[in-house]
Nucleic acid binder design. Sequence first.
DNA 1: ATGTCC
Length: 470
Amino acid sequence: MELVEERPYRFRIDPRRGMRVPGVVFASRELLRDAEKSLEQVVNVATLPGIVGASYAMPDVHWGYGFPIGGVAATDIDAGGVVSPGGVGFDISCGVRLLAADRDRQALEPALPALMDGLGRVTPRGAGPGGVWRLSGHRELERVLEGGSRYAVEQGHGEERDLRRCEDGGAVTGADAGRVNERARERGIGQVGSLGSGNHFLEVQQVMEVYDEPVAAAFGLAAGQVCVMIHCGSRGLGHQICSDHVRAMDRAMARYGIDVPDRQLACVPVDSPEGRAYLGAMAAAANYGRANRQLLAEAARRVFRRETGSRLTLVYDVSHNLAKTETHRVNGEARRLCVHRKGATRAFPPGHPDLPEDLRGVGQPVLIPGTMGTASYVLTGVSGGGAFHSTCHGAGRVMSRHQAARAVGGKELRARLEADGIAVRPLSWRGLAEETPEAYKDVDAVVEASEGAGLCRKVARLVPLGVVKG
DNA sequence: ATGTCC
């Protein structure tokens, strides 16, 4: 792939065969080693009808279903722009929630084993059913799908203030429970408040380093402080919605005269019956994912209160797998865009009108989960970023699950992590081994490149004290 | 990511 280095951490792929816009890749040469397949996907995405600006790749880009993970693509809704489920991903609204304790590491150190045992006990995880919230029935599931974290808080699962620190106030608009079919509902009804598996985790962390003290303070973070980070998504419900709509769009595409270089890029105009159906269902799954994180946070709060008497305050909750309708200036003109972020995090700059008042001066908290056993980051949005206010979402995988499990045994890995002072509460040895840190890119390098590319700014670095895994 | 194949 021919990459033109425009400036440090920014490469361009010039338009060729069918590309409507260039590709823009934010990364270092080192991070792009073995990235050929994902760069082909960046090129494929650039052919989508209505795409504006560029087909973007974040520094953690890696190969995904149709679109690369770590990809951003915006389409012009009023100019026939398309929406594609592959641009959101199977785990709709997968994201991160960070809570800060009112204690530092020293104060909580003696209680850590009990905290980890408690968190391990109350956190449903792994594949299949199970969740901390038993819904009264399908009517209540509809409320979750349309109300997200807001509905959870209304039902007593959280505090009103939480909602001010959630993307979209805890519930995305446009959710249509009527678009969520029976099968997705059946899968979703018993999983509200569950972690899932794979790279999802709940970690107890410590703020190791603060890069920007005033911004960290505005976020509610200080050096030494203990935090809880929750990384999960919309479980089987989101997965079902994605599968159903990929199939439906694959069949409908030809009727709109759309031809894509890869069937996994199935898409239809945003402004079409199939497009609206997907976006209504996707928004419902997004709210499900938010309620999911709200419930897990409440369970963690109860454990912290019971074991230590400490309180957990929400720093922020943000998704990194979502398509959203946003207004951006394109060639000097304000346009309504469908911004697909797949493994990419929205990062509003200071002054953005959609930020809550107390964060407007400093920008949006961007939460970057590292790999199990490695650092995580809190970043903030900056002006002029250049990818529709988006940045990276974490470390990208470099080793397949199978390769990872062959490279290390679960028990051996746990011993290694515990020797490093990280308590581990796994569900399965195999699942643990598949998530070994060497299976992922170096999150420090990813964040370095994201900041170097001008997509965001570092605020704090967090290291794990204990991890609960599916 | 995912009742890791309807």
